[in-house]
Amino acid sequence: MRKPKPKTIIGTDQARRVIWMYNRFLEGNSYASAEMYEEIIKTFKVNISLRTVQRDLRILHEMIPNMEQVNVGRQVYWQLSKNALTPLYLSKIDANDKLGFYFLKAYLKQFKNSVISDELQKLSKKIEKIADGNLYIEESFNSIAEHGKYDYQKHNVFFEDLLQAIINKQWLNITYRDLFTTEIHHQFALFRGFFFFRGSILFIAFVPRKHGDLAIPLENISNSSPAEPYNDYVPEFNAKAFFENRYGVSDGPLINVELQFLPEIAPLYASRQWHPKQEVFPQSDDSVIIKFPIMMNAEFIKWVMSIGKGLKILSPQILIDQVKEQCEAVLRLNS
C-alpha cells in the first residue's frame, strides 16, 4: 500500500514569500520563475537562489489547486486560473453595481500618466473581471459641458493651501464672493472638505457668523490667511443633513412643495427620485403630483423654470411668486 505524501512544512520566511506570491497572483498577474525571482529579490532584499523561488512556487501549487502553468513559446508562466480570480460575489452584482464599475474603469483612465499609474493598472485589471471591455464612452467626461468648464490651473497653489488647512484643522480668515451675487464677504472659517459639482470645485466651510456650513466655489475665494483657533463649540459636519433638503448647494428657506407634472412629461418625472422623502400621487388624467420638502434656493427655482409648460406649481405660494417674478424679468430683458 502506497504511503500518503507527507505535508510540506514551511518556515516563517518561506511562508511570507509564498503569501506575497499568492497576493500577486490574485491581482491577475502571471510570472515566469525568473520574473518572480527578480520580484522577490527586489521586495524582500534577500540573498536566495532561483531554485528556492521555484520550490516556493511548487509549494504554492500544492496549497492552491487553482494554480496553473501556461506555456508561452518556450517559457512557462505561473498564474491562477480564471475561475479562481472570479470574485465570489460576482453573481450577486446587479445592473447598478456593474454600471458603477464601467464608469470607474473609464474614469481611472484619465489618470494613466499620473504618479499612481502603476497602481491604477493593477486596479483596472481587477475591475476588468467584473466589467469586461471598454463600453463606457470615456470621451463624455470632457465633451459634455452643460454647466461650462472652469480652468483651475491658476488655482493650484491656493487649492493646496486649502487642503493643508483641512488636514491640519487650521482656521482661516477668508474673502469670498456669494454664489449668485457680487456681494463680497470677509469671514472666519474652518474648512471641512471639498467636492465637485456642476463644473466647479466647492469647499464646505463652517462659518460661525453664519451659524452653520456653507458651500463656496474655489474660484469665488479670493484670499485666505491663517487665523487663531475658534474657542467655542463647533458641531461635526453632517453631510447627509447638509445635502438632503438642498437642490444644488446654496441656502434658502425650507418649504414643502407640491408639483403637478402634466401627462406629456409625467412618465419621465414620476420614474425618477428627486428627493429621498418624495411622495408620488398618480392622477386620473395621467398627470402626476410629487410632494417633498426642499430649500427654496436659486438652483431649485432655476430647475422648476427649466421644466417649462409641462409643470404646474400647486404650492407653496411663495414659490409661485418667485417663479412669476423670474419669468417676468426674463420677458422684460428680452422684449
Score class of each variant (00 low, 15 high):
F188A: 05
A189S: 09
F191I: 11
R192K: 14
G193L: 08
F196S: 11
R198L: 10
G199A: 07
G199V: 10
I201M: 12
I201K: 04
I201F: 15
I201C: 06
L202K: 01
L202R: 01
L202D: 07
F206A: 03
V207F: 07
V207P: 02
V207R: 01
V207I: 15
V207Y: 11
P208Q: 12
K210D: 15
H211I: 03
H211Y: 12
H211P: 02
G212D: 05
G212A: 14
G212T: 09
L214G: 04
A215K: 13
P217L: 08
L218I: 04
L218V: 01
N220S: 14
N220I: 07
I221V: 13
I221E: 04
I221S: 02
I221T: 08
N223R: 14
S225M: 05
A227N: 09
Y230H: 11
Y230W: 13
N231L: 15
N231W: 08
N231I: 12
D232L: 09
D232H: 14
Y233N: 08
Y233F: 13
Y233K: 06
P235A: 06
P235T: 02
E236F: 10
E236C: 01
F237V: 00
F237W: 07
F237E: 07
A239V: 02
A239C: 05
A239P: 00
A239T: 11
A241G: 06
A241D: 14
F243A: 02
